[in-house]
Computed example of a mutant assay.
Amino acid sequence: MLAKLPGLIRIPLALLLLAGNIVLHVLPLFAFTLVKLIVPVPAIRQACSRLLVRIAESWIGVNGRLFDLFTRIRWRIEGLAGLRRDGNYLVLCNHQSWVDIPVLQRVFNRRIPFLRFFLKQQLIWVPLLGPAWWALDFPFMKRYSRETLLKHPELQGKDREATRRACEKFRHMPVSVMNFVEGTRFTPAKHAAQSSPYRYLLRPKAGGLAFVLDAMGDALHAILDVTIVYPEGRCTMADLIAGRVHDIRVHVRERAIEAGLLGNYDEDAAFRGRVKLWVNTLWREKDAQVASMLTAADAAPTGN
């Protein structure tokens, strides 16, 4: 019913409720984070960690309910059968928009362990959200440009060390580690600049995937290969909140972690070649999957 309200009423109301949901969940999240920090008893800290995840899952659940109330999105989701809340997953996905994140949260919330993303270091300063991500053990990465590394070679490998430290923490909890393999959001300009061999995707980056698998490969039990398609074209968070997104399609495929994907990416050239071949093969299949999903969307009856 709320989706039928005029935009001048619906959009501010949706923003107000989304902001209220942030405050409603962030305040108790910070309270239990403080307890976790100051109480040295391991059992209490573990209990706080579990409560923090439940608060975050409630936060995501309420956001999903609000989007259901204020939008008219047709969801087409395939491949969720057999997922486990007690499993440990590496989630790989194409990346088109910040909308990908609430989509992934909506699809996987309470179906697999809580999703954690690698975030840029600067995002820790986002009001309320940055400290909340920190409290939930989201790993913050400080990426260095090629120019910076040339001027300061001592920084070489620091981002990889941060990846390893984050993943070591994840070895002792149920976790789903999210990796956007392209490393950045798709745009036609980036696609052209890369001379990407894929029609709908940027070139994949194998290094981050290899480092995560190397750090916690034996603690992970599967890879979730996720493809997201917006048949109406790439969209923004503003489009989502304003109700301009009407069709979202998600395909999930569980893949085994092959023994050949575990090794030293920096020092073993043969292994590095195997990982790149595996990722490029995956990306060719994903490109074909996107094409198939778009074709299916074009063939769907209007309003279905």
Rank of each mutant, 00 (worst) to 15 (best):
residue 139 P to F: 09
residue 22 I to E: 14
residue 95 H to A: 10
residue 12 P to W: 11
residue 15 L to D: 00
residue 172 H to R: 14
residue 17 L to P: 02
residue 114 F to W: 06
residue 59 W to C: 04
residue 196 S to H: 10
residue 75 W to Y: 13
residue 97 S to T: 09
residue 139 P to S: 12
residue 87 G to E: 04
residue 126 V to P: 05
residue 129 L to T: 10
residue 243 G to F: 00
residue 284 R to F: 01
residue 115 L to Y: 00
residue 105 Q to F: 14
residue 33 T to F: 14
residue 253 R to A: 12
residue 271 F to M: 09
residue 159 D to K: 04
residue 216 M to C: 11
residue 85 R to K: 04
residue 193 A to K: 15
residue 105 Q to T: 13
residue 134 W to D: 02
residue 162 A to D: 10
residue 38 I to P: 08
residue 168 E to K: 10
residue 78 E to W: 03
residue 294 L to M: 08
residue 8 L to A: 12
residue 83 L to P: 01
residue 85 R to F: 00
residue 102 P to T: 14
residue 131 P to C: 10
residue 60 I to F: 08
residue 206 A to C: 09
residue 87 G to C: 02
residue 235 C to S: 14
residue 18 L to Q: 08
residue 243 G to A: 00
residue 246 H to Y: 10
residue 255 R to D: 05
residue 288 A to E: 05
residue 76 R to S: 14
residue 275 V to A: 05
residue 276 K to Y: 05
residue 219 A to L: 02
residue 3 A to M: 11
residue 63 N to W: 11
residue 170 F to H: 07
residue 233 G to N: 09
residue 82 G to P: 08
residue 246 H to M: 12
residue 57 E to H: 08
residue 34 L to I: 12
residue 239 D to T: 07
residue 67 F to E: 01
residue 64 G to Y: 12
residue 264 N to A: 14
residue 215 A to C: 15
residue 26 V to M: 10
residue 110 R to Q: 15
residue 39 V to Q: 08
residue 176 S to I: 01
residue 152 H to C: 09
residue 134 W to Y: 15
residue 90 L to V: 04
residue 13 L to F: 09
residue 121 Q to E: 15
residue 88 N to F: 01
residue 218 D to R: 12
residue 244 R to N: 07
residue 242 A to M: 03
residue 181 V to H: 03
residue 303 G to P: 02
residue 20 G to W: 03
residue 1 M to E: 13
residue 115 L to A: 05
residue 235 C to G: 08
residue 288 A to H: 03
residue 30 F to C: 13
residue 284 R to H: 08
residue 221 H to R: 10
residue 79 G to K: 06
residue 231 P to A: 07
residue 278 W to D: 06
residue 209 L to P: 03
residue 235 C to E: 07
residue 84 R to K: 14
residue 97 S to A: 07
residue 125 W to C: 14
residue 131 P to I: 02
residue 298 D to T: 15
residue 239 D to I: 08
residue 45 R to V: 07
residue 53 V to N: 07
residue 31 A to Y: 00
residue 161 E to M: 15
residue 55 I to M: 11
residue 170 F to Y: 15
residue 31 A to F: 10
residue 134 W to S: 06
residue 24 L to P: 04
residue 192 A to N: 00
residue 125 W to R: 15
residue 96 Q to Y: 12
residue 218 D to N: 11
residue 272 R to Q: 11
residue 2 L to H: 04
residue 153 P to Y: 01
residue 17 L to G: 09
residue 171 R to V: 05
residue 281 T to M: 00
residue 197 P to H: 02
residue 285 E to R: 09
residue 83 L to T: 03
residue 260 G to I: 11
residue 13 L to C: 09
residue 279 V to H: 00
residue 209 L to T: 02
residue 126 V to H: 06
residue 89 Y to D: 02
residue 54 R to D: 02
residue 106 R to S: 00
residue 126 V to F: 11
residue 140 F to Y: 13
residue 254 E to A: 11
residue 296 A to C: 13
residue 215 A to I: 11
residue 185 R to G: 03
